[in-house]
Design a protein around this nucleic acid. Structure first.
Lengths: 214, 214
DNA sequence: TAGATTGTTAATCGATTAACAATC
DNA sequence: TAGATTGTTAATCGATTAACAATC
């Protein structure tokens, strides 16, 4: 609290599951359940109890032998771990269908992410605001980023402006990317932290899996 | 060709990379490159040559020693493997921001997926079509699914109707789910093929990773 | 033929699962 | 205290990487 969070070496899979645990704990809390064992939670989430305990213990011991985990205590610890209370500023690049849907569909505030500005690529939109987020022309990117110093950029543009813009942003010291663009941002940018959401890959993967079942 | 594709046991990670390879091969083809080695491709994609060869060889030998891979030949083989030429029918459940963005943003046709119908949950929309896709009230789901027998359902609704609707769809023999809903469909549905796109988990994971870097 | 690069087997690495002693 | 369930170490499993013989 107040001190820098220790840098713990965990795999992305673990972090992703932490986020699932948090979601599940919120549900449990809503249902008025105050206590849960790793075994029960494993059944409910389709995992193993062992994995859940391993995951949690890579951040610390939040349970009590013979009792299990307090839903409230564990939830609040996972919230700190994931940092939902720390503010994180983001810019959205690309206000097409997807960018628009993201702004309107995702409760960024709940995750401590605030979208400072959105940037319009080649006159995609005629509005000046979406859901309260101000839309600026792409020309204003550099100046705006310099002044508001966002930690995250949400890339929802076609590959071609995408590659260029990502490079620019990294020069401007933006290192976190939520990448909806079919561009590989890791290449040549070892410092970038990239979370890819490649919907086309996802769709093709599903398509293949369905084929296998038939 | 004409015969049933053999059911090959590969991990989801491999399939997902196949889709990346396909995307990359398309780019190479556009650039007029007709030949590529695993080593070159590994550099371009930030992978190891070994992994690429392993991945490809779990489906067959598409290369030639001393030469590498023909871009065109490999591309067409991956297309067959992923089945982009086989038609796949899908229904979209939920025409909110996200459902709408998916229809407008993703080139389903390119991946051999055709969206037969979209279903409106609780009057989300007043249109009757989006991008040529007919929108029906959710009451019509059962009858429509029985008659058009889609292999895939795209779930873009809130968790609560989601859980219920998924159950219904499985009863109606729809086993493939592209799941944008924060509901765990695997549980209790061992037959379901589910590809989860949990955007909130993804955002939280990125948020954590950014925190680690700082 | 010599050089290059695959296909494939073996070695390594990491992640998941199992087991159990510690302890509430 | 006895029973339950964690935290943690050890065993297993699977995926990635390395190595190299086959061969174009």
């Amino acid at each position: 609290m107040g001190t820098d969070a220790p840098k713990i070496q965990v795999s992305t899979s673990v972090v992703r599951r932490m986020s699932k645990y948090l979601r599940h704990l919120e549900e449990l809390e809503n249902d008025g359940i105050s206590r849960i064992s790793s075994q029960m939670m494993a059944n409910q989430l389709g995992l193993t109890a062992s994995q859940i305990r391993q995951d949690l213990n890579s951040f610390g011991g939040f349970g009590q032998q013979g009792y299990g985990y307090s839903v409230e205590y564990l939830k609040s610890n996972i919230e700190s771990i994931l940092g939902v209370h720390r503010k994180c500023h983001a810019v959205l690049i690309g206000v097409g269908d997807l960018g628009r849907a993201l702004i309107q569909h995702i409760d960024f505030g709940k995750y401590g992410v605030s979208i400072a500005y959105a940037f319009d690529i080649g006159g995609q939109t005629s509005d000046s605001r979406i859901d309260g987020v101000e839309i600026l022309p792409i020309d204003a990117l550099e100046q705006t980023v310099r002044s508001c110093q966002p930690q995250m950029a949400i890339l929802a543009v076609p590959p071609e402006p995408g590659r260029e813009i990502a490079k620019k942003l990294i020069e401007l010291q933006v290192f976190g990317f939520w990448n909806f663009t079919n561009v590989d941002l890791h290449i040549g940018n070892p410092d970038a932290v990239v979370e890819d959401v490649h919907l086309a890959d996802s769709l093709l993967t599903l398509r293949f899996m369905i084929g296998q079942k038939t």
